[in-house]
C-alpha cells in the first residue's frame, strides 16, 4: 500500500526470515541510530515508522517485523499483504536460513508478482569467518529472482543504512512506474467503475455539489 499525498509516500516494508537471524536487531539498529526517531525510547521494535527524504521526496517507511518461527510461516500472507517491499533476512552462518529465504522469495513472487521490491540481506557479516552461504550462490539467486543482495551486520552497523536507502529508492521507482501504468489502468478501470455504479457516481456528484 502506497500513496503519495502531499508528496509523502507511505511504503510498507516487511521483514521476513527465519527466527533468530537478526531481523529485529536489524530493525533496531536502523531506527535507533536516528536521533529524531520517536520509538527509540521504547523497547518494542516490532513495528517502526521511519521517515526519510529521498530525491526531495518525503518517504515514510512503515517497517513490520514478523515472527520468524517455522510454525508461523503459514501466516506470512497476512503479514506481507499490500506491502511494497520485503527484506528477506538470512544468517550467513546458517545455510538453512538461506533455504528459508528462497522459499519466501518463491512465495512472494507467486503471491505478489513483481509488485514487491525484494531485498535479500545476509546478516551477521561480522561473523564472516563462519560464513556458510557462499556469496556467489546468494548473489546469483538474488539476480535470478530480481532481488538485490546485501550483506549487513546489525552488531557493527554495517550496510543497514544503505540497504534501506536502496529499498526506498527501488520502491519509489516502482511506485512511479506503477503510477504511470497504473494511471492508465486505473483510468480504464475507472471507466468500468463508472459504468458499474451509476447510482453511486450520481450520488457522489450530488453530494460533492452539496459540499
Amino acid at each position: 500500500m502506497s500513496t503519495a499525498r502531499n508528496g509523502t509516500h507511505n511504503f510498507k516494508v516487511v521483514l521476513l526470515g527465519e527466527g533468530s537471524v537478526g531481523k529485529t536487531s536489524l530493525l533496531l539498529r536502523y531506527v535507533e541510530d536516528k536521533f529524531n526517531e520517536r520509538h527509540t525510547s521504547t523497547l518494542q521494535a516490532t513495528f517502526l515508522n521511519k521517515k526519510i527524504n529521498l530525491n526531495d521526496k518525503r518517504i515514510n517507511l512503515a517497517i513490520w517485523d514478523t515472527a520468524g518461527q517455522e510454525k508461523f510461516h503459514a501466516l506470512g500472507p497476512i503479514y506481507y499483504r499490500n506491502s511494497n517491499g520485503a527484506i528477506l533476512v538470512y544468517d550467513i552462518t546458517e545455510a538453512d536460513s538461506f533455504v528459508k529465504v528462497k522459499n519466501w522469495v518463491k512465495e512472494l513472487r507467486r503471491m505478489l508478482g513483481s509488485d514487491i521490491v525484494l531485498i535479500i540481506a545476509g546478516n551477521k557479516i561480522d561473523l564472516e569467518h563462519e560464513q556458510a552461504v557462499p556469496t556467489e550462490e546468494a548473489e546469483s539467486f538474488s539476480k535470478s529472482v530480481g532481488a538485490q543482495h546485501y550483506y549487513t551486520s546489525a552488531k557493527v552497523n554495517y550496510g543497514i543504512e544503505e540497504l534501506f536507502l536502496v529499498l526506498a529508492q527501488l520502491m519509489l521507482q516502482k511506485f512511479e512506474q506503477g503510477s504511470q501504468t497504473n494511471h492508465e489502468a486505473s483510468r480504464a478501470s475507472q471507466v468500468l467503475i463508472v459504468d458499474d455504479d451509476e447510482p453511486a457516481h450520481r450520488s457522489c456528484c450530488f453530494n460533492s455539489s452539496r459540499m
Binding site: M1, K12, T46, F47, A62, K71, F72, L75, I78
Partner: peptide
Amino acid sequence: NAQRLMTGEGGYYFTNLCCAVSF
C-alpha cells in the same frame, strides 16, 4: 480506512491479531 490499517501501528498489531486468530 485501508490507509490506516495498512500503514499505522494499529494496523500492524491488528495484523498480528489476525495472524493469531488464523493460527
